[in-house]
Design a binder for these strands. Sequence first.
DNA 1: TTTGATATACGAAACAATTCGTAGATAAAC
DNA 2: GTTTATCTACGAATTGTTTCGTATATCAAA
Lengths: 125, 125
Amino acid sequence: MKIPKPTDAELEILQVLWEYGANTVRFVNEHLNEKKETGYTTTLKLMQIMHGKEMLSRDDSNRTHIFDAAVKEEDIQKELLDKFLDATFRGSASKLVMHALGNSQTSKEELDQIRQLLDQLEGGK
Amino acid sequence: MKIPKPTDAELEILQVLWEYGANTVRFVNEHLNEKKETGYTTTLKLMQIMHGKEMLSRDDSNRTHIFDAAVKEEDIQKELLDKFLDATFRGSASKLVMHALGNSQTSKEELDQIRQLLDQLEGGK
DNA sequence: TTTGATATACGAAACAATTCGTAGATAAAC
DNA sequence: GTTTATCTACGAATTGTTTCGTATATCAAA
């Protein structure tokens, strides 16, 4: 199966569906509007395009269609991360990781999780 | 000072200058061509635009101009990372970190560096 | 000093992503 | 049953990015 690469606007829509599950255009549009004014038909058009690309599934058995993400969050994240890592950090994962941890406030629990992963990775070296 | 956000093509040019230092359009173009065929004037135009945006400095005391990055690699990386983190991982740095480390092969030295950073971060909690 | 290679400048084409207006269908409210 | 609100469909405008063709200048080699 081939994974389509979402554009920025498409990704925003996916985020809403990943977070809240299958929903209407109106619901998605209203969520997007919390961050940035967007016309209803703009969101509609985008979701139609995404459906065309098989990025979204659509239940059109009722007048008001229900859309859902047809791609896995993790798959898309992995795909975008690969590209970003390469373009921005020339492939150096450790640099990216250091920046990411340096900038943001990450909880102790999350840091411990990362530490566990390090143990696991380093175990195999 | 305001940091301009480079586009994809602009970032590729910055990467060359960050890696090799101040250089000519031809040099940059030839490096870009290793990855992807690009016309000379395309690269030239882009670098002129970037100069206009004050993303690159230019020494035009000779016929062949010498360009250099006028923005710090770290600053741009931080800026792009923030945006990417938000757009793709809804701000969860730990998720991004786990993905990044999971996907790529990172050396033992790098992993140790990350571990040190963790110690440091966790020390303050 | 003519020819050829190589430089900059820059308008405009080509391409891609996003936004919006409008038409037409359906449902709900009156 | 007529009006009003809400839905989808979709063409087209807008905006942003990238690519390229062409004009013109400069330098070096013949």
